[in-house]
Design a protein around this nucleic acid. Structure first.
Lengths: 201, 201
DNA sequence: GTCTATAGGAAGATAGAC
DNA sequence: GTCTATCTTCCTATAGAC
């Protein structure tokens, strides 16, 4: 095996871990399977990470950043508010349908963290990052289009986060895209009802 | 140890398993810990259940039935539609806040089932049971109060299921009851907007 | 039906040669 | 830095006495 700095090995192992976890689930992501996926021996794993939980922490960080990076902050109001929201939801939904494993993994990691004493903060940070991304999205759209919100931006953002979370989980279990589309229509209507578009001056 | 019919022993073991899973998480619910919790030896476990997965199947069934039984089908329209929905959400939410472990367990079991090849149907059945309970709730309220729904009953029911699911998960991670109450207010408004109350004849 | 004892394996982590 | 070999612990499941 080629030698390389420990930092890069760590990156390799984290990526391998994410692949294994996506494919086989968090419970089956053992130190051995991760090391094998990365093409290194078990000892290299423990040379780079003090423990499995150490690696796990890096995995959660990486996954969370990756998910947040997928939120497009450059939304612009095109057409009605309702249509803009619907388009945003559609973009998100396309990602869920085409990458279900990735979303499943985020749920698994959340629960894994909630169950390991001393790791609850990782789950919390994960959800706070998502919440912050949603707030940013709502505020950008509000400011760029001069919208008036009938509820605080933070509340609307939380509503969005909660609804997409519930819908995603539902899809991972029942996998019923048609019903999901119906609900996305309803949700877009609901969001539009929480926003007022002031007349052009 | 006293002798008893295998059926009752099975019940005991399933209840012990649920206690262990609620307390320590599904991953830590080993055959040993479950047998110890039930106060029987490991061999008794395997006398009553062919395998751990056999027990697991019974656990999911039991938990699902228990959750569905918590849905009160005797809702009646008191005051406005909005207030009735809000009251129903409040009752559900009280249960979430006072029994977080129980709800956490249902999420864990769902994921556990989704990841075990050959057990996906358990997760699906679980969510279908929830969906059916929500549909029943909506239809009862609609019929008893003569409401007109602006979306199909099934869609409204799914909206409710998705929103409560997302909200519950959010609470298990962030545990922010005040923000949750705000969202429950918004959601009650949203639901009321999907319903029209015809004038009394 | 219930027990003790054990098979048989996989897990996390470490030791020490190279 | 990387390897093979090994320690220790925990798991599911079974065997066989009572």
């Amino acid at each position: 095996m080629a030698r390389m700095p420990a930092a890069e090995r760590r990156r390799q192992l984290v990526e391998a871990a994410i692949r294994v976890m996506t494919r086989d689930g968090v419970a089956r992501a053992t130190t051995r399977s991760i090391a094998a996926e990365a093409g290194v021996s078990l000892s290299v794993f423990h040379y780079c990470f003090a423990s499995k939980q150490d690696l796990f922490e890096s995995v959660v960080e990486t996954i969370t950043e990756h998910s947040v990076a997928g939120v497009d902050p450059s939304v612009a109001l095109e057409g009605t508010v309702r249509d803009t929201v619907r388009a945003g939801l559609r973009a998100y939904w396309d990602h869920v349908v085409t990458h279900p494993g990735e979303h499943m993994l985020t749920y698994e990691l959340t629960q894994y963290a909630l169950r390991r004493p001393g790791f609850e903060h990782l789950a919390r940070r994960q959800y706070e990052r998502y919440a912050a991304a949603h707030v940013q999205l709502v505020e950008r759209l509000r400011d760029s289009a001069g919208l008036e919100l009938l509820v605080p931006a933070a509340t609307l953002a939380r509503y969005l986060a909660v609804v997409t979370d519930g819908l995603t989980l539902n899809h991972l279990v029942l996998c019923d895209p048609e019903r999901a589309e119906e609900l996305l229509d309803v949700i877009a209507d609901q969001c539009a009802a929480l926003v007022r578009r002031p007349p052009r001056p």
